[in-house]
Design a protein around this nucleic acid. Structure first.
Length: 589
RNA sequence: GGUCUCGUAGCUCAAUUGGAUAGAGCAUCUGACUACGGAUCAGAAGGUUUGGGGUUCGAAUCCCUACGAGACCGCCA
């Protein structure tokens, strides 16, 4: 049982025995702030009505009770209404003796719950940019965290492989492409298709401009332009199964998949299951028909199908166009059904940007209106956009930070810094290249994941990502440093539990102890940021101890063993934490 | 127009979900290698938590209000 839980139960017992009353809610225990003596703090203010005594007396009563009741409580102090509880060194050393060699420390027991995490979910009309990287890293990391905290996790990727946007790229390629392919142009497939998406937009805009200068109003011009009409026709042909259209569609999507695959591989993200909208949208259409028959939806005279969500505080929402083609949300209804049919998961997490908050509210409501049992398990993990100093990234306008370019840049930066520091003797060329990639990606991944997912994130391409301070490379460096210590360490084992700890040792053990609750909290909040910030606290505590105390050269065997155990355990936990973030832990750097 | 986010040191972020004197990193300044890795450590400086009001033992956190930033409300995805 965790120390917090024992303290909570002890406090409940204290109220029962000292004040003969129950606590109305579960008492809250928090970590004691650094400037005060103690490890855990209980705030008594909310309980004064129960104790009928002043804050100091109440805290004193409970402190005294806990000290007698729990053998690991070595003392306490009271400041105003704050009871600071001190945990004895014996407890901490025992904890270290028991866990120092456990490479799975912090891994929770199986919860017997299945959760699907859908992330990445790219459109096949443009290459990945920094915003997609945030999505990919978040999704991967959240999935890893959930798995470590005991859930059975399925990583899913829903490819948006159909729709009007794809038709735009296809049309532009058919009109202006002259048969260009990734092979003939030497371009990565996703970049090539993205190029035609931009070309479409350019040509479309200039056509609108012409129509407007010819006296047409803008809105009408947007609908009347021949290019958009052709694109819409192409979509209809696609839905009708036109052979030539499908052939080009398959070919161009194939180019994109190859491009994506290499980026996924490079980033180290993976998936258990791929879904394709082209396979699910018909199911969605079917669900729409069923909803229509059930009376959950209604049809207008022009044939379009809608749901009335005004009773839920929202608006009317279109589910199928008057021409019979499906819209974005239609396929989401189908995909949700397909996912559930296959996996029967307890929860279904969608890692999607907060610009789609409304969309997911609507989706969940639609599923409820359709009477789907799995509607309540739908959870939109809504994350903030990555903004540039100039504002939002826009693929069509070319103001994006391209994923592949950025990874190359960080690789180069990491190479430069590593060479300056000159600590890589004995590395082969291949190992060096791998190391630069690991460090560059460590910097990027940590940079993106240390921020609360819900918050928007600012990226300034002019300011390079740091490699010092609260960064990925700093955590990686500490890992490499400990690895170096362990390589030259003598054999060691458990120590006497009655010795006393120095402040630096104690702080480090306390940090290690908190890993379990960091994992639990990160899983509950679905926030890798909690793991990143934890890892930073941990390595800071280690570096401090490393600097203040000798380890291998310590003459006292008990002390030396203690510090070696601390080093070994820190190394394990750092590696695990980095792993949960998708960051590599190099042995040397 | 309606709905929803957000506003913390010059910059990028924390703050155990209502607790103590709001903490880190970067940048700036100062100090520490004949130590097991200096991508490190120690220190200085930097704040009316956007302004104003309220709720209570206690507010960056909850409520109201003003200002500022952003997103969504498409027969786009």
């Amino acid at each position: 049982m965790s120390i917090e839980l024992q303290l909570i139960q002890g406090i409940q017992k204290a109220f029962k025995e000292v004040y003969t009353t129950d606590t109305p809610a579960v008492p809250v225990i928090e970590q004691t702030k650094k400037e005060f003596v103690g490890d855990y703090t209980f705030v008594v203010f909310p309980y004064l009505k129960l104790s009928k005594k002043n804050p100091e007396q109440t805290a004193g009563d409970i402190g005294e009770f806990l000290k007698k009741e729990l053998n690991f409580v070595s003392g306490y102090n009271v400041i105003k209404g704050f009871l600071n509880i001190e945990i004895g060194d014996t407890f901490w050393i025992k904890f270290l003796n028991e866990n120092y060699s456990n490479t799975h420390f912090g891994k929770a027991v199986l919860k017997k719950q299945k959760v699907m995490v859908e992330y990445s979910s790219p459109n096949t009309n443009k290459p990945l940019h920094l915003g997609h990287i945030r999505n990919n890293l978040l999704g991967y990391s959240v999935a890893e965290i959930l798995a470590y905290s005991g859930y059975e996790v399925i990583k899913a990727n829903l490819i948006n492989d159909r729709g009007i946007h794809i038709c735009k790229s296809m049309l532009a390629w058919m009109k202006f492409g002259n048969g260009e392919t990734p092979q003939s142009s030497g371009m990565k497939g996703d970049h090539l298709v993205g190029k035609y998406y931009v070309e479409f937009d350019k040509a479309y805009k200039s056509e609108i401009e012409k129509l407007v200068s010819g006296g047409m109003d803008k809105e009408r011009a947007e609908n009347e332009a021949s290019l958009i009409k052709e694109a819409k026709e192409l979509l209809l042909k696609w839905e009708a199964g036109d052979e030539e259209t499908l052939r080009i569609w398959k070919m161009m999507n194939g180019w994109v998949y190859e491009g994506f695959e290499s980026t996924y591989k490079r980033l180290g993200v993976n998936f258990d299951k791929f879904y394709y909208e082209s396979n699910t949208y018909l199911l969605g259409k079917k669900a729409v028909q069923e909803g229509l028959q059930q009376g959950a939806f209604y049809q207008k005279e022009d044939g379009s199908i809608w749901i009335d969500l005004t009773a839920d505080g929202l608006d009317h929402k279109l589910l199928q166009r008057s021409d019979g083609t499906s819209v974005y949300i239609t396929q989401d209804i189908g995909t949700a059904q397909m996912k559930y049919d296959e996996y029967k998961m307890d929860r279904s997490v969608y890692v999607v940007g907060n610009e789609q908050d409304y969309h997911f509210k609507v989706l969940q409501l639609i599923l409820k209106h359709l009477g789907k049992s799995y509607a309540d398990g739908v959870y939109h993990l809504s994350y903030g956009m990555v903004d540039l100093p100039s504002g939002k990234m826009k693929s069509r306008e070319g103001t994006v930070v391209d994923a592949d370019d950025l990874l190359d840049e960080l690789h180069a930066t990491s190479e430069k810094i590593t060479k300056e520091l000159g600590k890589t003797e004995g590395f082969t060329q291949e190992q060096l290249s791998e190391l630069y990639e690991q460090i560059g990606q460590g910097a990027l991944k940590y940079f993106l994941l240390k921020v609360d997912p819900k918050k928007r994130l600012l990226f300034d391409p002019k300011e390079s990502i740091d490699f010092q301070g609260n960064t990925g490379p700093f955590v990686q460096y500490t890992y490499a440093r400990i690895s170096s210590v362990m390589r030259s360490a003598p054999a060691f084992g458990k120590v006497n539990e009655t010795q006393s700890l120095l402040a630096e040792e104690k702080e480090l053990i306390y940090a290690l102890y908190r890993f379990e609750e960091a994992v639990e909290l990160a899983a509950r909040e679905m926030s890798p940021a909690i793991i990143a910030n934890y890892a930073y606290e941990l390595v800071k505590a280690y570096n401090k101890m490393y600097h203040e105390l000798t380890i291998i050269k310590e003459a006292d065997e008990q002390k030396r063993n203690l510090r070696l155990m601390l080093s070994g355990m820190t190394r394990n936990v750092v590696k695990t934490a980095l792993g949960l973030l998708g960051i590599a832990a190099p042995e040397k750097m």
